[in-house]
């Protein structure tokens, strides 16, 4: 298969970027999207050009590193799938594919398709944890947790922190990310003590980082590679009101 790529190239945060046309030739349908880019990069290096910088690591859809907007959709056209697990068999030979970075004020571009998502880390640092020092834990089975409750906590905890929710939102809101962590910990008995303080601190940090507000567009849920439900946002709003 052959493709015409339009790739966002940007030297760094200070310089302006733009879309550059690059050919991807001899692509196999079994390749992942990132392997297709690997091939393009190999050719670029051979030709003496700089390879396209893009973030990636595990290539199993779990580390949350890859962050490409493909044809206008964060992580591309396949539902519930991170870009690293998207395969070229989902495209048609001869397609034009536009590849851009996450776009949000709180995620400045570092280079080409790489953005700075440290705002997410600072939101977790603000309160996305249970304050328990090593060694001071009770026997694990001493606190029973109902199966349904554990499953709900796990549904929310499945978030991989990739930031697609922010990239998809017209307000660049981080509500799905923050709410997933708030919901996960509020669901469990271990998270009760700090429940009120946690949601207040995390929301305050989210606002400080420059993320927008939620206007119920649900674009975040549509692109989430872990298919986290917007129900967690409703839960966070309840948590916030009660706190």
């Amino acid at each position: 298969m052959n493709f015409k790529l339009k790739v966002w190239r940007q030297k760094d945060a200070r310089n302006k970027g733009g879309l550059v046309e690059i050919e991807a030739k001899g692509v196999s349908a079994d390749m992942s999207f990132l392997e297709m880019l690997d091939g393009v990069n190999e050719e670029l290096i051979q030709k003496g050009s700089e390879p396209i910088a893009f973030d990636h690591d595990c290539r199993e859809g779990i580390c949350g590193t890859c962050s490409l907007v493909i044809n206008g959709i964060p992580h591309g056209p396949e539902r519930g799938t991170a870009a690293c697990q998207l395969h070229m068999r989902k495209f048609k030979d001869g397609d034009t594919i536009v590849i851009e970075p996450w776009r949000a004020r709180a995620f400045p571009v570092v280079k080409d398709l790489v953005v700075d998502r440290s705002a997410f880390d600072r939101i977790i640092q603000a309160g996305g944890f249970v304050s328990v020092n090593t060694g001071s834990a009770p026997e694990a089975n001493a606190i029973p947790i109902g199966k349904e409750s554990a499953e709900r906590a796990m549904d929310a905890a499945a978030c991989i922190g990739c930031g697609a929710c922010v990239a998809a939102c017209k307000n660049a809101s981080a509500m799905l990310f923050v709410a997933a962590k708030v919901s996960h910990l509020a669901e469990l008995p271990q998270g009760q003590v700090e429940r009120g303080a946690r949601v207040k601190k995390m929301v305050a940090q989210m606002d400080r980082e420059g993320f927008g507000n939620c206007t119920n567009q649900y674009e975040c849920e549509a692109v989430c590679p872990k298919e986290i439900s917007v129900g967690v946002i409703a839960k966070m709003n309840r948590e916030y009101r009660q706190s």
């Binding site: 944890f129 249970v130 328990v132 090593t134 060694g135 001071s136 834990a137 009770p138 694990a140 606190i143 554990a150 906590a153 796990m154 905890a157 996960h184 910990l185 469990l188 271990q190 998270g191």
Partner: peptide, 8 residues
Amino acid sequence: QCAAQGVP
């Protein structure tokens, strides 16, 4: 330790 941290 992990259960106390909220590992589901």
